[in-house]
Computed example of a mutant assay.
Amino acid sequence: MSAGRFDHIVVVDWSARATPSPKAPTKDAIFIAHSAHGATPQVSYYRTRADAMAALEQVMTDTLMRDERILATFDFSFAYPAGFAQHLTGKADALSVWPLFAQMVKDGPDNANNRFDVARALNRRFPGVGPFWCVPKTQACPDLPARDLRHGHHLPERRKVELAYGKMQPGWKLYTTGSVGSQAILGIARLQSLRGRFGSALAVAPYDGIERPIVLAECWPSLMAKEIAHYALAGEIPDAAQVRVIAAGLAALAPDDLAKMLVDGDAEEGGVLGAGHEALLRSAIHAALGP
């Protein structure tokens, strides 16, 4: 059986909100699309990261109990530019940083978190002005500036995949529009908890291979921005539309094609699911959702 064959496809639109999202679904919150056995994706809304993770853990536990497989994708960076992991851990391995993040991050049931403190502490481990930047003025300090004053740490601004797609934001940016940095800090810590929970049953693509029952992968829905806009429903929140459309496309992919996408990337900077395979993903979305 192809390692790219999954019974469940999950696509997560993440959030770094510091308070619970409103009761009514709103943009810039957490939405999760779940396609089971190729069925139309069902989209759920979560007010907190804790609630979203509890739901994901339950789906993964149920999947294992049924001897099935699940691919869960998340729209935040799983890795940083070359040199970051090596400096912090002595290993040029993106996953070597994950336990450190999990140890440092405090992320409460009400979304209260210490992401800026974590970034500040990480910056202090680098010479010069460390790589993380962009925070509210009340959080700014020499170790974590509000503006891009980074220097002396010898780290690139972007990963290779981020350079290839000019609209992808660098993982160092923590605040304001397009800032994936805060989402990554909080998200990586949460995914590390899944690694601890499921152990050898879980793999992080492309680092661990893709043969295990639970596979996590980084995605960037904007890779299919035109398709998402085309298939968005009247009045649908954009975050909900993007997870629904991407989940439908991934579920419709031929297993061998999905496997090819999942193994792209390297041990230090990882990769983005579908990057370089846009035509395949686009065709799968059209096949799933129509002309």
Rank of each mutant, 00 (worst) to 15 (best):
M1H: 06
M1I: 03
D7H: 14
D7T: 07
V10Y: 01
A18I: 13
T19K: 11
T19W: 03
P20G: 14
P22I: 12
P22F: 08
T26L: 10
K27N: 10
H34W: 13
H34R: 14
A36H: 14
G38S: 13
R49C: 11
D51C: 06
M53V: 02
L56V: 00
E57P: 04
P81V: 02
A82Q: 10
T89I: 05
K91E: 07
S96A: 15
W98K: 06
F101D: 10
Q103C: 06
K106F: 09
K106Q: 15
R115K: 13
L122T: 07
L122D: 03
R125V: 06
F126N: 08
F126H: 06
C134E: 12
D143S: 04
R158W: 00
E162F: 00
K167Q: 14
W172A: 13
T177R: 09
V180F: 01
I188A: 02
I188E: 04
S193L: 12
L194Y: 08
R195N: 00
S200R: 13
A203Y: 03
P206Q: 13
Y207A: 12
D208W: 01
R212D: 09
P213S: 15
L216H: 06
P221H: 03
S222L: 01
A225S: 15
K226Y: 06
Y231Q: 12
R244H: 07
I246D: 06
I246H: 02
I246K: 10
P255R: 14
A259F: 01
D264F: 09
G265N: 08
E269I: 09
E269G: 09
A275I: 07
A275N: 06
G276I: 11
H277P: 06
H277Y: 11
H277Q: 14
L281R: 05
S283C: 11
S283D: 15
A284Y: 03
A287V: 02
